[in-house]
């Protein structure tokens, strides 16, 4: 085995310990958080009961699957903003092990892609752990009572032409219409979160 591979394995073994809590159940209280926004260097606080409807999406800079969904998340954030839906993008990846996930790189990404939402650094991966996020992208929709109403994927496919179920937008439409969400819980798929190692 090459030294490079061994080094990568060691890095990954360190960066991906058994970590992360249980995925928040539908109806569970969403944890509040206050995180630094990479876009402007200011703290953004999320109080689950303060917004009409909130989307917390765990995403990152480098995961190809997360990047594939990025335009879709931007599109949905713009579409639903006038309806009172607030989006928060949270990057939980360990930037010590993965420098491409550091604040300056996040800021560059948020600026170049024109993120219409704060891009927050979950420095110690604690928020992702509390939500039970496993992968990027992983979506949680929280209603005005602070309860989780949807969890899972953005859509069932990253390929527009192969989409059969629109996870996030179907859920938002149903909640905004005062109805029930047909698929409340779907399986998010993507890159495993690169958990911050406990120091």
């Amino acid at each position: 085995m090459k030294i490079q591979t061994l080094a990568l394995l060691a890095l990954i073994a360190i960066a991906i310990p058994a970590f992360g809590g249980e995925e928040l159940a539908i109806g569970a209280d969403a944890p509040a958080f206050s995180l630094l926004n990479a876009a402007d260097g200011k703290y953004v606080s999320f109080d689950p009961k303060k917004n009409k409807l909130s989307v917390v999406v765990f995403t990152c800079n480098e995961c190809p699957y997360a990047k594939a969904f990025e335009p879709r998340i931007i599109e949905l954030a713009k579409h639903y903003a006038p309806m009172g839906v607030t989006f928060y993008a949270v990057n939980p990846n360990d930037d010590a092990a993965y420098p491409a996930e550091a604040m300056d790189k996040m800021r560059a990404r948020a600026t170049s892609k024109g993120f219409p939402f704060p891009y927050l650094k979950d420095t110690d991966s604690a928020v992702a752990s509390k939500y039970g996020a496993r992968v990027t992208p992983h979506v949680f929709i929280v209603d005005s009572a602070g309860r989780v109403r949807y969890r899972g994927y953005v859509d069932d496919s990253a390929k527009v032409e192969e989409r059969k179920h629109l996870g996030m937008s179907d859920a938002l439409d149903a909640i905004l219409a005062g109805g029930t969400v047909k698929r409340q819980s779907t399986k998010a798929f993507g890159c495993s979160i690169k958990w911050k190692r406990a120091s």
């Binding site: 591979t5 990954i12 991906i16």
Partner: peptide, 10 residues
């Protein structure tokens, strides 16, 4: 595209 997967292949 999955780094841990690639590392596991050998």
């Amino acid at each position: 595209w999955c780094m841990p997967c690639v590392a596991e292949m050998p």
